[in-house]
Computed example of a mutant assay.
Amino acid sequence: MKKMLGIVILLLVTQMSFAQYFKLTPKGFVSNDNNDYTVVEVPNVKQVDLYKNVLNAINTIYRNPQKGLSVVEGESISIAAYEEEVLPIKLSNGLGKTLRKYDLSYTLTFLFKDGKIRINSPAFEARRYVEGSYKGASGWSGDEWVTLSLKKVGKSKLYLFEDNGKVRFEDAYDGLNSHFNALLKQIIDKSGTINNW
């Protein structure tokens, strides 16, 4: 019996450690139910306590959260954040593949009711700064920001999904899914333990 209980606990911990709140699609992040939000059940916890705990968790995770923080007291929290070089992508350079690191700017939004936290789909932009270079007869190209789009825009070759939904850059796709799901899990986990010290 003890052995069976240990296996059940191990399975629960394993499930919780791989929380997948959202998956990336050509439309952006969607929940497992294909909604633009997901709901985390937190039984027997009042709305105001959930709000305070998530706000405290955000304040411990981010260096200077007040810069991008927008709140409706007791009801909702939005954080706009920017992280440098957190998304590595292998891109073809004509001779092979080169690893390029992209910055992420994103917004996370949480809404609260008694016993429930609603998390809206993360909105994000992945981009990197490219310094100008000499292009031969056409001269110099200027410095610019290069953005990874979800779908093809114009003649750009830097997009994540083909028209048929196939992923072009698996490392970028996996990296975005992992980054946002891990970040949301960290916030939710920390909010559950914030007052237990």
Rank of each mutant, 00 (worst) to 15 (best):
L183K: 14
G139M: 03
K46H: 06
K90R: 12
G175L: 01
L55C: 07
E75N: 14
A126L: 00
D143E: 15
K97P: 00
I194Y: 10
T38E: 08
L184F: 10
N32S: 14
F161N: 03
D49L: 09
K3F: 13
K151E: 12
N34R: 08
N35R: 09
N64Q: 12
T107W: 08
L91Y: 02
F29H: 00
V86I: 12
K155Q: 07
T109R: 11
K101D: 11
Y82P: 10
D33E: 13
L12Q: 06
S178P: 07
K27Y: 11
F18Q: 14
A19M: 03
S17K: 04
V45G: 05
D143M: 08
P122F: 13
L11C: 13
L50Q: 03
N177L: 04
V72E: 15
N181H: 06
F161W: 07
Y51P: 05
S133C: 06
V86P: 02
D33A: 14
S17C: 07
R127T: 15
S178N: 15
M1C: 10
N164L: 02
T25K: 01
S156M: 08
S78H: 08
N181P: 04
Y21R: 11
E75P: 08
N34T: 10
S70N: 10
V54N: 00
V153A: 13
H179M: 06
S17R: 02
V146M: 12
N120F: 08
S31K: 02
Q20K: 11
L55A: 01
E41I: 09
Y51D: 10
G115D: 04
N56V: 03
L11D: 10
I7A: 04
E170H: 08
W145V: 02
F169D: 01
L5S: 13
R128H: 10
E75S: 14
D174K: 10
P26L: 02
V8I: 15
R168L: 12
D163L: 07
S121W: 03
N93C: 06
V30H: 05
W145I: 06
A81H: 07
L183V: 09
Y173N: 04
Q186R: 13
V13I: 11
T25S: 06
E144W: 09
K135F: 12
T14R: 09
L91P: 00
W197G: 13
G192S: 10
M16D: 01
L10C: 09
S191Y: 03
L104F: 03
S191D: 06
L184P: 09
L150I: 01
D189H: 11
G175A: 01
D103G: 05
T98D: 05
G192W: 00
V40K: 01
Y21D: 02
Q47G: 08
F18Y: 11
G74P: 04
L87C: 10
V8F: 13
Y134N: 11
S121T: 13
I194R: 05
